[in-house]
Nucleic acid binder design. Structure first.
Lengths: 118, 118
DNA sequence: TTTACATATGAGCACTTGTTCATATGTTTG
DNA sequence: CAAACATATGAACAAGTGCTCATATGTAAA
């Protein structure tokens, strides 16, 4: 007996649809990576950082100031954003400047805003 | 002294940029809602459910079968997806059928896939 | 080199989250 | 009505996450 011993007898399952879903499903790694990507967008501090970077390239210190958060907290989040390739960084003297890595960030955020503003 | 007592003296802040960021920032509620929305996409079980629903409208039982997960786990996740208005449901006899709520889901997922496949 | 500043990072803790298990609700059939 | 089935939901627990604090690294000025 499988997981569904007490649910969903054979006659009620739409077997052909389930098979189609299983056939079309992206591979396990892609699914995992996709969820990991959205997880990065799923924190209000990181969202605020990304929106701040819509305006301009900013140094860590600027971002801390704009968000009213400690440099450490912001720096930790910036690393996560950088690991996911959502932002890129550039050192200029003592400062490190961050900016958006590509257009996907903007598109994804715009679609998200569209959705919540309905 | 504020939060930044030991960091980022006045001369190093790009005050005009910070002010611009503060002025253009969406209100607190929108930022929070946006992060909440992406948080929903940020779980591989929910991503798998959404991708399954790309193919067809499915009942809870079909989804459990396709994902190889218990009915309870799937049902909990479906409620989260429904609360965020990413899926909608329709009862037909004993079954409840779920489908994608609107096109934003597809667009957001497609952009996400684009990003990770680069 | 020493000092000061900007940023990065590791450890620890409080809080959140996904699953399981047990059970409740809703629907159809006998 | 009772029994069977599909789905929903509350509680509890393990695993993950974001912040703080302390400290390390990197860079420029004295």
């Amino acid at each position: 007996m499988g997981i569904h011993a007490e649910c969903c007898d054979e006659q009620c399952i739409h077997k052909n649809l389930v098979d189609k879903v299983l056939a079309e499903q992206p591979d396990e790694d892609a699914l995992y990576d996709l969820a990991e990507l959205f997880k990065v967008f799923g924190d209000s501090t990181r969202v605020r950082i990304l929106i701040a970077l819509f305006e301009a390239e900013l140094c860590v210190c600027d971002i801390s100031e704009a968000l009213g958060m400690t440099q450490s907290a912001v720096s930790h989040q910036l690393q996560i954003l950088r690991t996911s390739k959502l932002v890129k960084s550039r050192r200029e003297g003592k400062q490190v400047y961050y900016s958006l890595a590509d257009d996907h960030v903007v598109t994804i955020m715009a679609q998200g805003l569209d959705h919540i503003l309905e």
